[in-house]
């Protein structure tokens, strides 16, 4: 069956359109403004124009979605009950959980909780799916490793004390209607 081709009439390209010229000039203006700020900004009292990473770290906003990590409660246990919703929600299937039983009230904990960092795309769906506020997107963005095995983070690598995650948890409660 021959493909049917329909020719669509398009207006010829006109470089001299006034709105494209304006957009071009606006782009030039942004570049020029940065040039001027970097050349003469010191006169207004600005000291550094660069964060000297890794000696200095930029404190990311709480809205930043870095590595998903597990919330560790004050008693050292994870808050996760291994319900598997993040594993199900994950679009890249980078989470692997095997649950096991505990003797306490919670009944259940993740025996294995692995996140393949090299597959994670920081979408934050795991955090949204979590009914226990147990997995949150941290400010951790340094995930490079020397081997593929190093990109597989186990439960011990993922546990972060709840005190360190307070800003993100507060942000979640304020913005996700929890």
């Amino acid at each position: 069956m021959a493909a049917r081709v329909k020719k669509v009439m398009r207006p010829p390209p006109r470089i001299a359109d006034w709105h494209s010229a304006v957009a071009l000039l606006m782009g030039f203006w942004v570049t020029f403004r940065h040039l001027m700020v970097n050349l003469f900004g010191f006169s207004r009292g600005r000291q550094d124009f660069t964060v000297y990473y890794p000696e200095q770290r930029f404190l990311h906003a709480p809205a930043l979605r870095g590595m998903p990590v597990l919330v560790q409660m004050e008693d050292g246990r994870e808050r996760c009950v291994a319900c598997g919703l993040c594993e199900w929600a994950c679009p890249t299937s980078c989470i692997t959980i095997f649950p096991a039983e505990t003797d306490d009230q919670v009944e259940r904990y993740p025996r294995v909780f692995d996140i393949d960092v090299s597959r994670c795309m920081f979408c934050g769906l795991c955090e949204e799916a979590c009914p226990e506020e147990a997995i949150v997107m941290s400010r951790q963005v340094e995930i490079a490793a020397y081997s593929r095995a190093g990109t597989l983070w186990h439960k011990d690598d993922l546990l972060v004390p709840v005190a360190k995650l307070k800003t993100r948890i507060d942000y979640l409660r304020a913005n996700y209607g929890r």
């Binding site: 598997g84 199900w88 095997f98 039983e101 009944e107």
Partner: peptide, 9 residues
Amino acid sequence: FHHRLRVWF
């Protein structure tokens, strides 16, 4: 099958 795996997998 107590606390083994999620059935949807």
